[in-house]
Amino acid sequence: MNAIEAYNITQRYGRVTAVDDVSFSVGEGELFGFIGPDGAGKTTLFRIAATLIIPSGGRITLFGLNVVSNFRELRSQIGYMPGRFSLYHDLTVEENLNFYATIFGTTIKENYHLIEPIYKQIEPFKKRQAGRLSGGMKQKLALSCALIHKPRILILDEPTTGVDAVSRTEFWEILAGLKNEGITIIVSTPYMDEALRCDRIALIQEGKLLGIDTPARIRNSYSRKLYAVSHPDRYRLLLALRSLPQVVSPEPFGDSVHVVLRDDADPAEVKRALEGAGLSGAIIAETVPGIEDVFLELMQKEV
């Protein structure tokens, strides 16, 4: 039995369609990521999965239980971490954890082994009020709170937003550890680079799924040969590339510009053309498409 089965989920708010005919399934023990920008419908989808919203259309089950009709049974099996960390700022770290343990009918002691690797890192500050913690520590506390009742599934809505890179790396390591405990995890993020941490990902944009697969296969699905062109003057490089007939859709990408060449044009030809345009020393090399390249391609196909 799959952990999640979702069929044709749709959610409308007036004339706005936040989630548009989304179907997916998540296996037990899988770490599944929803990758998409703000406003793509990730939060709405997660709230539906967490039994908080009844979708306008479609059907979704968790462990075979319908989130609409069986929400009472499901709620004790879900660990949900909403986008804003859901902590009581005026309570201490320990009081927050205790509170969440109590409302889920358990104690810190009972499931301490599960949260230990995470909670240990914030335990030195357990007498501190949650409002005075750094973003990374809030994130870990919120995760501890979501885990304290030993849920079968974790639903984490943008857990890494607003948190620094070090804390984010640590957070993904923690998730990998929880996955090994057999907990199913669905997680959303606007950051494409975090996709690689997941077993499988779904790319989502404007309420629609653009693709579902393993990160590796998603990257391989990029249909064309991709080149990275670099030159110190990136703006002129970008403008020059745009004017070249051999080049399709040049896109700035970090310190280079990613381009696709028309009809397998010769990269050396492009380099010469750039030199002709006064951009000597430009480097052009084939590159491996990232998730973001694929996302871009899929987005452009949608349009």
């Binding site: 967490a50 908080l52 949900y80 859901s86 009581y88 969440y100 409302i103 979501a146």
Partner: peptide, 13 residues
Amino acid sequence: EFGTMEVLLVSPL
């Protein structure tokens, strides 16, 4: 406002 209600609602309470 602080989003804690979401978790309370998801709890078996």
